[in-house]
């Protein structure tokens, strides 16, 4: 069997899902036998090469998130939503109750620990009006909910995908 190609990306998330991915521990060696990780925050590649499986952590909060997501969608055969932010919006979507200006002012100017703060405007992506789960922007083929999903469930789902199977959904977890 030819080695599969995996790409992972982290959008508006906390990196917890990637930490959980690294928690595969010794199973990473098994994974390496079955697949190559061709792009990832832990692999220094600027663009996504063609891949079989794309794992997305985090929701879509700004223009950059959206651009990266669209690129990965185009590059991967199977796009997998990894974790609650990508699947449900989760904590980042708390900001959706407020206007972007209020959120930025609060974070950069009003916050108690800051004096003479200013909202950064140079070389930072523009916030989108709402943080949304990735499937509101692109077609998603599979979901692994969890905050973060445990290494066991990532292994179960990714393992099934590598073997070309469909993992059953009996082990859902939202937290």
């Amino acid at each position: 069997m030819a080695k599969k190609r995996i790409a992972t990306v982290w959008l508006c998330g906390c990196s917890g899902c990637h930490m959980s991915f690294l928690d595969l521990d010794d199973r990473l060696i098994d994974l390496a036998a079955m697949a190559d990780v061709v792009a990832s925050p832990i692999v220094d590649v600027k663009d996504f090469p063609k891949c079989d499986i794309g794992l997305v952590e985090g929701g879509v909060a700004n223009e950059e998130n959206l651009e990266v997501l669209l690129k990965l969608r185009a590059a991967s055969d199977t796009l997998v939503s990894l974790g609650d932010c990508a699947g449900f919006g989760c904590v980042p979507m708390l900001r959706n109750q407020f206007s972007n200006q209020d959120v930025l002012d609060r974070a950069y100017i009003d916050v108690e620990s800051t004096a003479f703060g200013a909202v950064p405007t140079i070389e930072v992506p523009q916030l989108l009006p709402k943080v949304k789960p990735i499937h509101e922007h692109v077609k998603v083929d599979a979901w692994i909910p969890g905050c973060p999903p445990s290494a066991d469930r990532i292994w179960k789902a990714v393992g099934a995908l590598l073997r070309g199977e469909v993992a059953d959904g009996d082990t859902l977890e939202y937290d």
Binding site: S81, D84, G87, F88, G89, C90, V91, M93, L94, N96, K130, K132, P133, H135, E136, V140, W143, I144, P145, C147, G169, L172, E173, Y174, D175
Partner: peptide, 30 residues
Amino acid sequence: HICPFCPRSGNCELQNRGYEHGVDHVRFDY
């Protein structure tokens, strides 16, 4: 609904019904 920081998570009826019915994402706009 944000499960990760909810005190009822793990003992929540909405969550359990979601698990039972395979709700792994929400197809409607939030």
